[in-house]
Amino acid sequence: MKTLILRWLPNGRRTVIGIPFTFLLLFFLVPFILVVTISFSQQQLGVPPYTPLTTLKDDVYSIALNIGHYKFLLQDDLYFATYISSLQIALVSTLLCLLIGFPIAYYIARASESVRGTLMMMVMLPFWTSFLIRVYAWIGILKNDGFLNQFLMWLGLISAPLRIYHTNWGVYIGMVYSYLPFMIMPLYAHLVKMDLTLLEAAYDLGSKPWRAFIEVTLPLSKNGIIAGSLLVFIPAVGEYVIPELLGGSDTLMIGRVMWDEFFNNVDWPMASAVTCAMVLLLLVPMALFQHYQTKVLEESKR
């Protein structure tokens, strides 16, 4: 009996796991369930601007699930195009981040130990300023009479200003700028712990430096590439601020659609349905990643 009571008392292990678990439960799972319920309700004027799912009328408790919004999502080409466009913009941004971030991470990881900390600090320094302000600053740089165009015209490279602001180019620049640190950090973590004698072994066995990079360094940083790519890709799909501020009216991204449904149309159920569909869309790459991670873990344990 005593042991039974003891068993249910919180012990250290449970407390440690329990705190983040409770946090996620309260601030992620509960709100998400609310969003899911709203997505099955109907729009109405009033507070809240949606109908309850359950009604109790004449002793009959009924649950009404409205799947109309989901049906609409599938039927309306605009939503489909928006999802595809979001995925595409996120994918291109991720690839650009990888192409730019890998050399940076590689350089920092191979730099002498005394400067590594400073260099990583510089990568993370932008986080000290508000994300919104930093994206705003890009407007000043990219707009037609902005710093970039003035500079290029002063150099004589172009005669008329480049139209970057309010185009997808602006979105890509903003995305790469904002998410680059998220790519660099996991890549750096993998590259810095790589055993450099493996490269020496490759050279010793007749491998030229670039081949050693492709056959040894790159495969060994695979997990860093996957982690960094997901860290960029997943938030990039749902990004709202960057396409809103830097993108044009033709820049279709799911975050903006959500915003419009929610604030302009006050259509909470539709906005919720759009959100749920996006979560489903993102669950696929995340599940793949998880599956891959456990496979790697199991392999190294065997």
Binding site: T197, E200, A201, A202, G206, K208, P219, L220
Partner: peptide, 26 residues
């Protein structure tokens, strides 16, 4: 000249066969 490293420096992402064949492939 080839070297057997103190830590062996075997490539962790390759099988034994591919490790041994690495130098020949180069």
């Amino acid at each position: 000249v080839n070297m057997m490293f103190q830590s062996y420096a075997l490539f962790p992402h390759m099988t034994v066969e591919r490790n041994v064949g690495f130098g020949l492939r180069q």
